[in-house]
Design a protein around this nucleic acid. Structure first.
Length: 922
RNA sequence: GGGCGGUUGGCGCAGUUGGUAGCGCACCACAUUGACAUUGUGGGGGUCACGUGUUCGAGUCACGUACCGCCCACCA
């Protein structure tokens, strides 16, 4: 029936994703179906939707003027795609495809992050393997090498992203270090500098000796560690018999000490204030000062002050006007400094600690070495121990930026889902510290600052978009650009608008798609990235860069451990796609997402579910298409000429459409997937398709049945397309036949429940009839009636509605239960004596089994059921006699309970009668 | 030291305005010639961690306890 490449042409009964995924993706991409302008043009050219379909899909709620936009959290060019990316991008793709199908201009910008330290490190390691360093190559050659590596890596990771079936607009691909991002970064830096929000200064930074660069506070990871507290004797300068005992975890820094501090309120020690003590292992003396910062209760109450190597000491030193000698070099070795004894110069810091300990011990100055656990900072990227170090760096004054961001949150310009993350975000912004943005690396955005250096070696920085001709202060034309680069997160922080043409705020994309609609990411980068984007976005564009931040959980391994390369517990998404099919994988993953954003423990059998579902869908479609003929594809359905079962499935379809819309609007991705699956598998496949097999054999219902099959399958594919793009596309195109309304299901309209004529409630009491079917099946199986043998059934149905529902659905009952005879009575004059019985609603269903029935077994079964019913009944009755309940519960609740009671009452009566009858039989 | 999340049948998890619990896997039994065994049908299995409170009514709200996990914080 179709000329399109057919996945159904094969005789195999299993869905094979590999045969369609690559081809479909190549076609989507080459036809630019992810570009909003292309989609719009093609839509305008397309034929209108077929009549039946248009009834359901037209007038979708979204206004075509209102755009929906996303920017991808750009993956690092170092890595390979991991499960977190897979989840993150699948969810974004669901949103994008869903909005695209609603006729909204939709753009999703893809790209990658140059990942400063991370990438530079990878390339340096490669060099190291060849026995070289970056200095051997020189800056220019090294950068060329990194660019080459990044290009390679980018290609690979974006290729992996394509395997995920995602639909970002590849024509807009961006890179945080490409030419247009360079413009954005420069403009941002200059603007912030001119507004006094960036400054250069000497502060204590987190120094990573391995990369010989500063890093920011949040790149430091603290770990609890067992160490020692060294109690060291600082002998009084005025009296060799007296000494102040100082406790420190870092004896090797004592050469940088400029004072010993005690708390002025410390009665034991405050008499030392103003005196001098000898600095151990040196000839120097340093003053004892009083500062309330010192904790009297900790250690010995005396604190050595090392301003250049400790953040707090720096503050203390500054308060007291003390110098700050730097006694460690950039690689973490004791420096070639006058204060450091010559034989210790150049010694690595941990080695130096040991040597200092030995020297102190030898000179009798080490009083005690006490075991002590403390927190040690590590570089997140390098794993090296962070060295607090006094250094001249560029800082972003984050305080005002954070205040603006907080206001934006309060004003409701921005919201988090789930909401609880707002508290974390707020707390962090409220306690924000200046952000050190300069890095002593080569790979990254050059800082747009140039220096003129005068004869006294003073630096005069000029911050500008381009290199200035000459220095306005010194007149010098010999200007040197700052050799440092910017923190990667500086450019990432601009991403939502640097990808939209900013600083050109008149660019089409910026006007149309900024601010973006939603940011989808994991909680681990709320501080690193989300907060930086809001701060930068608000400062530079005046707008929050997104309205909604959707935070999902992390993917963990089966045992709940974080996946990491070093643990070897990672799962490669590309391998998973090979194994389960892209749609199966995406579906499986999505079905695990919870609204609360819990972390996801990933086990293979969970993804297997998705694969099974894809197969089920494929087979269901195969069945439908086997039975369709041309006219069914433009069906008009007159609701009242449909069978009750037809009406029922259309009602279920409408409900499914409503649920999908509601779930997606509320970011309930997991429920969206599971609800849609339930509709397709349970309602459509297990009930409707089975019934359709009978209806197709009946000439009076055949034609309409085919149309309903078409309509519901078509709708199901649309509902599933956001999460299962390939299989839905493939089947839909095939279902559409030679002249599809659109070149791709991704442009077709998403089902809209409001536009459907099917009632939301079960129109013909089918749900009750299906319940009856289940009860009958249960009875049959309980008594091991072979599937092949037809049974005779008697139903006592005193309730009019229930009786009518059964009578109106005789074909259904016969379709699902093999019966030789069925009798439905309003009032049964004589109950069958030897029969198994079951109650549904107010009906009694008898399965006469004169020879087969085991009376004992039936008695036991009934007694057990009766017990349960009676207990329920008693409880309910008690409740309905409870004055409190009757006066305070809502009308609806009471009515529902009453109805329940009536039903239970009837059922209890039936069962006890039956039980009595059985007991009378010997 | 502060904060957050989790604790529901053997396992993994849902449960959004409070009305006595759902799903998947696993398990047991049955079914195999036409969409699908990557299947269908039926079934068993839970005092919702513990305590107190609010309420006619609590898995759901409040307070507290225990255990697990995470985040933040300058105590040398």
């Amino acid at each position: 029936m179709s000329t399109s490449p057919s996945s159904l042409a094969s005789t195999s009964t299993a869905y094979d994703p590999k045969t369609i995924e690559a081809d479909l993706y190549a076609r989507w991409e080459s036809q630019k179906l992810f570009s909003p302008d292309v989609v719009q043009t093609l839509r305008a050219q397309s034929a209108n939707e077929v009549p039946m379909a248009s009834e359901h899909f037209q007038n979708n709620t979204q206004s075509p003027d209102k755009a929906f936009s996303l920017v991808i959290p750009p993956p690092n060019v170092t890595g390979v795609l991991h499960m977190g990316h897979a989840l993150d991008n699948t969810l974004q793709d669901i949103l994008i495809r869903w909005h695209r199908m609603q006729g909204t201009p939709t753009v999703w910008i893809p790209g990658t992050d140059h990942a400063g330290i991370a990438t530079q490190t990878v390339v340096e390691r490669q060099l190291q393997a060849e026995g070289k360093t970056r200095d051997d190559l020189g800056r220019q050659a090294f950068l060329e090498k990194v660019h080459a590596f990044a290009a390679q890596s980018k290609k690979s990771i974006l290729g992996q992203l394509r395997r995920l079936g995602v639909s970002p607009d590849w024509t807009r691909e961006a890179f945080t270090l490409d030419e247009s991002r360079v413009q954005s970064v420069r403009q941002a830096f200059v603007t912030l500098y001119e507004r006094g929000l960036i400054e250069r200064g000497d502060y204590i930074v987190n120094w990573c000796p391995k990369s010989a660069s500063a890093i920011s506070d949040i790149e430091v990871e603290y770990r609890e560690e067992a160490g020692f507290l060294y109690h060291i004797r600082y002998v009084a300068d005025d009296n060799p018999d007296e000494a102040l005992i100082v406790a420190t975890t870092r004896p090797e820094t004592l050469f940088g000490d400029v004072a010993v501090a005690v708390n002025p309120k410390d009665e034991r020690l405050n008499h030392w204030i103003g005196r001098r003590v000898r600095l151990p292992l040196t000839c120097d003396t340093i003053p004892v000062i009083g500062d309330e910062y010192v904790d009297i209760a900790f250690g010995t109450g005396a604190l050595k002050i090392t301003p250049a190597h400790d953040k707090n000491d720096f503050e203390v030193g500054r308060r007291h006007g003390l110098p700050a000698p730097i006694i460690l070099d950039l690689k973490g070795h004791l420096a070639d400094h006058a204060r450091v004894p010559s034989d210790l110069r150049g010694v690595e810091r941990f080695q130096a600690r040991k040597q200092c300990e030995a020297l102190l011990e030898a000179s009798g100055l080490l009083v005690q070495k006490e075991a002590h656990t403390h927190r040690v900072g590590y570089s997140q990227r390098h794993g090296s121990v962070i060295e607090p170090l006094l250094s001249k760096q560029w800082f972003v004054k984050t305080k005002p930026l954070a205040e603006r961001a907080l206001k934006s949150l309060q004003a409701g310009e921005l919201k988090f889902i789930p909401e609880r993350w707002e508290a974390d975000y707020t707390r962090w912004l409220e306690n924000i510290q200046p952000w050190c943005v300069s890095r002593q690396l080569w790979w990254g955005h050059a800082i747009p600052a140039w220096y003129a250096i005068d004869d006294e070696k003073r630096e005069f920085p000029i911050v500008a978009l381009e290199k200035p001709e000459k220095c306005p202060k010194t007149g010098s034309t010999e200007l040197v650009q700052d050799p440092d680069v910017l923190d990667t997160w500086f450019s990432s922080g601009l991403w939502p608008f640097s990808t939209m043409g900013w600083p050109n705020e008149n660019s089409e994309d910026f006007k149309k798609y900024y601010p973006t609609s939603v940011l989808v990411t994991g909680f681990d980068i709320i501080f690193f990235w989300v907060a930086r984007m809001t701060m930068m976005g608000l400062a530079l564009t005046g707008k929050s860069p997104f309205h909604t931040v959707y935070i999902h959980g992390l993917i963990r391994d089966e045992k709940g451990q974080k996946m990491s390369k070093s643990k070897g517990n990672t799962v490669d998404p590309v391998l998973a796609i090979d194994q389960y099919g892209c749609d199966g994988f995406r579906f499986g993953l999505t079905s695990l997402v919870t609204y609360g954003g819990q972390d996801i423990k990933l086990a293979p059998d969970k993804l297997e579910q998705g694969k099974l579902f894809a197969n089920k869908l494929w087979n269901a479609a195969r069945f439908v298409m086997m039975n369709l003929s041309q006219g069914d594809m433009a069906p008009s359905l007159s609701f009242d000429t449909l069978t009750p079962m037809d009406q029922w499935i259309l009602a279920k379809y409408r409900k499914a459409a409503e649920a999908a819309q509601d779930n997606l609007e509320a970011f309930r991705f997991g429920e969206y997937a599971i609800d849609a699956q339930r509709f397709v598998w349970d309602d459509f496949c297990d009930w409707y398709v089975e019934m359709a097999k009978a209806q197709l054999k009946d000439p009076t219902t055949e034609a309409m049945t085919r149309r309903v099959l078409f309509t519901v399958l078509d709708g199901a594919l649309r509902l599933l397309h956001p999460v299962m793009p390939f299989i839905s596309e493939s089947l839909w195109l095939e279902l559409q036949g030679d002249k599809p309304a659109y070149p791709s299901i991704s442009m077709a309209k998403f089902p809209n429940a409001q536009q459907m004529s099917a009632p939301l409630v079960d129109p013909a009491g089918i749900d009750f009839v299906l319940e009856t079917v289940r009860a009958l099946r249960n009875l049959r199986q309980s008594y091991k009636v072979p599937h092949s043998s037809a049974v005779s059934i008697i139903i006592d149905a005193p309730d009019l509605h229930q009786r009518e529902a059964l009578e109106a659905n005789l074909p259904l009952l016969h379709r699902f239960i093999k019966m030789s005879d069925l009798s439905i009575q309003a009032q049964l004059s004589k109950k069958p004596s030897q029969a198994a019985v079951s109650v549904v609603g107010q009906c009694q269903i008898f399965l006469p089994l004169a020879e087969l029935i085991d009376l004992g077994q039936e008695r036991t079964r009934l007694s057990k059921q009766l017990e349960k019913l009676q207990s329920d009944y008693n409880q309910l009755e008690k409740l309905l006699h409870n004055a409190g309940f009757m006066s305070k519960a809502t009308e609806e609740v009471i009515a529902a309970k009453r109805e329940q009671l009536i039903e239970l009452s009837a059922q209890t009566a039936h069962l006890s009668q039956q039980l009595a009858a059985l007991s009378a039989v010997p």
